[in-house]
Write a protein that binds this DNA or RNA. Structure first.
Length: 936
RNA sequence: GGGCCCUUAGCUCAGUUGGUUAGAGCACUGCGUUUACACCGCAGGUGUCAUCGGUUCGAGUCCGGUAGGGCCCA
């Protein structure tokens, strides 16, 4: 018969074994046969599968998993799904590179299409070399690749030991998610929260799509001020009495043909006489007004700026507030449109514009500088500067602004009442840590417009509307045709609105489908509705929504967190969850944020395989929520050592108590032996010391250890309840090392009860009362420690649990203090147990060890006799542990002496050799005198 | 420019409502293979709490200024 408890313990290989066991036993399966009060539901971030995983994911998902495991052990039925965010630009980009294709919606579907590349070498395929394919072919490739990516991701999460219910997995692009996103959109449409508008829109010319405010970032870019001369019109000459040109300085001279006005600050004396008068644009000879506006900065450039259609968002503000005309020049592809804007009338102007038409911003700028220089309309050399420029966070060209029809959802950006409601909603979210709320409030209060949700892309949830086409072939955007909710999901490009048939598509008096899709966030803002079954499972929804926890990174408070609050507020009038746990960043050893672009990322799977999942989890769990953490393999080594210690200490406890002897033959025998050793506690139920027969733990040291453990359980529980997993781990870990280094050593000999080395102990054989006390205490403590460590070290703890306890530790109840206090004999006739006895005995043991350490001999060396000088207040405690101390220190004879009394001459039997008094002795610290080691 | 967080031992970090002589782990040094563990054990040294000022009987902790680092928003 093979032994069930390994001869030599190892943490290697536990991941595969236990993941298989948890899967087959359904350990983390959500049981919906419960009430809302019994459920703890988690709104897990769906990672972008086409992105790469990094240690930051491992870090933050571990935080969530620790909470999930704690709540599960607290008796909650944990609703913990995982999702994949697969729609959107990142997937499209990856598909383009991976397969060497790009989407051209004008092409027809090709049956059995084989892409030109498969996987490739990971390098980008140049846009020009990408094969154009139909929208449907493109989406099929997106789906094929995300399916592959999802497998990789799932393998990693499983290896890490994330306790999600894998039967609840969802994709943001799946038909059911699309239906939820479309239904929420349609309801917002009917309530007037979703609307479309023709408006200046931030536009990424690479991806040819609109982007939202939340997706912007400022990047510092080199630029140059060019000083251009505007000739005065007659009214301006008259007003100033001067024929001198007006000079403006601009970083975007190429937008000169789009100029509609000049603007200066109302208080700027230099330009006051010009306000309301006119100037003429150089080259294009368009008469434009000079206006005043407070946003014009007197110290920027020459203090007067040109307003264009549209150079930046300030131009949009000026255009709106000063009610200016438009002169659009920028095409959706980032090139100048072929026709000059209105107002350019002279032959010279149209000829000048023809030089720019079709050019990119970059070459148009170069050309117009040449033309201005030739015409002597530019003064001096360009003045180089560095300035912030708006980019799409995923883009690599500066954003342009074009006027397009787009869909919006109200988010408080243009409505003070809604804004106030959303700020108030944020106050009711329990942010962990609390200061993260400020990020939310800053963002909400700083919104400048509604949420732009339409994207001119392909792989995403279609905006589910059609438009009537009039007799002239023009779509009527004012009254969109919506599907009924039971038709969802729909694809307006493939499906037909009620009352029409396919032959009427894009025909006069027919209909046309909306081509745009929704932004990714418009779907992922609905993850609570998706996972909780809002659309199709009202019973589940009632049991899981509002959810308990939203874990996420601080970088997406403005996007994911806020947009989820918006959707839930609009649809349900309540918060989507109670708590928001915000994880910090991972910093590399140079204190820089780890990111792919900096090339300092570490492959997570490699990390898990090298150190072990429990070890990596330990590192992650050692960092508090909201606090940045250093990437620290040293911490992983400590975690690995802790996991090893759990295995080895368990082996000792089970061996010394004799439970191993029984457990080696069968689990049932082990469980029964544990029940016997603990005097009836620890039957099969996993109920700690619940049924402990009072009185079996009799020795002061054992009682003190359990009393201390009860305090640790309280502290750990309190910390985890407050989402402070770091504190919980720390108190358990610290006490566990004391348990191993001091308590185990002190009771070792007593627990063995004279058994010979290597002898299998019979748990049922008669033993001394002192041994029985130690064995019961050891067993109860071990079982408690395993449960305390289970959330952080799920693999090592379940491994040990399986040796001698039934079921999984992850379904065992979280320990509580009371049974431990009872087992410690809180009402014992000898008085309440004193947890301090453990640290006092530990200090005494260290004092004895020090004798041998300083003598440079083995700790096994016997001490023939020694005087132990102890602070008065600790004498009783040391005496209580004296037999254990003598055994652990291998002391044959020991006198315990009050350290103060010892100062009196003669008491310790020795006079100081130099005749000086003993006043240097510190009576608050233990020390030894007259130690005699046994030679050999 | 506005906001948030951080600065404690060589490193990574604790330090609760202000209260003894500011702690832990790692690293380092020395010793040791003991019926759990060499992926080990034992023993040992380690500080201008960034800085300046204020409140207080008392400040790592509270208040203000300064410097440095990180992040978010303009």
């Amino acid at each position: 018969m093979t032994s069930r408890i390994p001869e030599k313990a190892t943490v290697d290989g536990l991941e595969d074994r236990w993941n298989a066991a948890w899967e087959s036993q359904g350990t983390y399966r959500f049981n919906d046969d419960v009430t809302r009060e019994q459920v703890y539901s988690i709104d897990t971030p769906p990672p972008t599968v086409s992105g790469s995983l990094h240690v930051g994911h491992v870090f933050s998902y571990t935080h969530t998993d620790v909470i999930a495991r704690f709540q599960r052990m607290q008796g909650k039925e944990v609703f913990y799904p995982m999702g994949w965010d697969d729609n959107g630009l990142p997937t499209e980009r990856r598909v383009q590179n991976y397969y060497g294709v790009r989407c051209d919606p004008t092409l027809a579907y090709q049956e059995g299409f084989v892409p030109p590349h498969d996987g490739g070498d990971g390098k980008s395929v140049r846009a020009a070399d990408q094969q154009p394919i139909s929208r449907r072919n493109f989406i099929e490739l997106c789906e094929r690749l995300t399916e592959e990516d999802e497998k990789q991701f799932e393998a990693l999460w499983r290896h890490l030991g994330v306790s999600v219910d894998w039967s609840l997995t969802y994709q943001t692009i799946s038909p059911s998610s699309q239906a939820v996103a479309q239904q929420a959109f349609l309801r917002s449409l009917s309530r007037g929260e979703a609307y479309q508008a023709e408006a200046p829109t931030l536009w990424d010319v690479t991806f040819r799509t609109a982007v939202a405010q939340a997706e912007l970032e400022d990047r510092e870019q080199p630029g140059a001020y060019h000083r251009l001369a505007f000739e005065k019109a007659a009214d301006a000459e008259e007003a100033t009495g001067s024929f001198d040109s007006v000079y403006i300085e601009t970083t975007r001279p190429e937008l000169l043909p789009a100029c509609v006005a000049l603007v200066a600050h109302p208080d700027d004396e230099r330009y006051k006489p010009l306000f309301g008068k006119h100037v003429r644009t150089p080259l294009f000879d368009v008469e434009v007004p000079v206006l005043a506006h407070h946003l014009a900065s007197p110290d920027k450039g020459s203090g007067i700026a040109m307003i264009c259609t549209f150079g930046d968002i300030t131009d949009v503000t000026w255009w709106r507030e000063l009610q200016l005309p438009t002169r659009p020049v920028m095409g959706w592809d980032g090139r100048f449109v072929s026709e000059p804007p209105q107002g350019l009338e002279t032959p010279a102007a149209t000829a000048a514009y023809a030089e720019l038409a079709g050019k990119t911003v970059f070459s148009a700028k170069a050309r117009i500088i040449e033309m201005l220089t030739e015409a002597d309309l530019i003064e001096g050399e360009p003045r180089k500067i560095s300035h912030p420029v708006k980019f799409f966070e995923k883009g690599d060209k500066p954003l342009e602004i074009v006027t397009t029809r787009q869909w919006y959802i109200r988010n408080g950006g243009r409505d003070a009442d809604l804004n106030a409601e959303l700020v108030a909603a944020g106050k009711n979210v329990d942010f962990v840590p609390d200061f993260m709320r400020v990020r939310y409030e800053n963002w909400v209060k700083g919104l400048t417009g509604d949420w732009l949700i339409s994207r001119q892309r392909f792989f995403g949830v279609p905006i589910p509307v059609w438009y009537r086409v009039d007799g002239d072939g023009n779509p009527d955007f004012n009254s969109p045709l919506a599907p009924s909710e039971d038709m969802l999901p729909v694809d307006p490009q493939a499906d037909v609105p009620a009352g029409f048939d396919e032959s009427q598509r894009d025909q006069p008096n027919g209909f046309t489908g909306e081509k745009d899709i929704m932004d990714t966030w418009a779907t992922s803002s609905l993850t609570p509705q998706i996972v909780c079954g809002w659309r199709d499972n009202p019973e589940l929804f009632a049991k899981t929504f509002p959810m308990d926890l939203r874990p996420q990174g601080q970088d997406i408070i403005r996007t994911w967190l806020f947009s989820t609050v918006v959707r839930s507020h609009l649809e349900h009038g309540e918060l989507p969850w109670k708590h928001a746990a915000i994880s910090g960043w991972i910093l590399d050893p140079d204190r820089k944020k780890m990111s792919k672009s900096k090339g300092n990322v570490v492959t997570p799977m490699g990390l898990l395989e090298e150190h072990g999942s429990d070890a990596v989890r330990y590192w992650a769990a050692s960092a508090r929520l909201g606090t940045d953490a250093a990437f620290d393999t040293g911490m992983m080594k400590i975690g690995r050592r802790l996991a090893m210690k759990v295995l080895n200490a368990s082996k000792f406890v089970l061996g010394a108590t004799g439970i191993s002897t029984a457990a080696d033959s069968s689990l049932e025998a082990g469980v029964e032996a544990a029940a016997h050793v603990t005097g009836g506690a620890l039957r099969g139920s996993g109920d700690a010391a619940n049924d402990a027969v009072p009185g079996i733990v009799t020795e002061p040291l054992d009682r003190a250890m359990l009393a201390g453990l009860a305090e640790v359980v309280d502290a750990s529980t309190k910390a985890l309840t407050a989402y402070d997993h770091t504190k919980a781990l720390e108190v358990a870990e610290t006490y566990f090392w004391t348990f191993c280094d001091d308590y185990l050593e002190l009771v070792k000999a007593r627990a063995y009860d004279g058994a010979a080395p290597g002898e299998a102990i019979d748990p049922y054989a008669d033993c001394s009362r002192e041994a029985a006390s130690a064995r019961a205490a050891l067993t109860i403590a071990l079982e408690t420690f395993l449960r305390l460590f289970a959330p952080v070290l799920p693999f090592a703890t379940d491994e040990v649990w399986s040796w001698w306890r039934e079921g999984s530790v992850h379904r065992a109840p979280w320990p509580v203090a009371e049974p431990l206090s009872d087992a410690a004999g809180a009402t014992h006739s000898a008085g309440a147990p004193d947890p301090k006895l453990i640290s006092i005995a530990g200090a005494a043991l260290a004092t004895l060890r020090k004798i041998k350490s300083e003598a440079k001999v083995s700790q096994r060396t016997e001490i023939a006799s020694v005087d132990l000088l102890v602070p008065a207040a600790q004498v009783a405690a040391v005496n209580a542990a004296k037999p254990d101390l003598m055994a652990a220190g291998r002391v044959r004879a020991m006198q315990v002496i009050d350290a103060v009394t010892a100062l009196e001459p003669g008491v310790d039997g020795m006079q100081p050799e130099d005749g000086s008094p003993d006043e240097i002795a510190d009576t608050t610290v233990m020390r030894t005198e007259n130690a005699e080691l046994v030679q050999d």
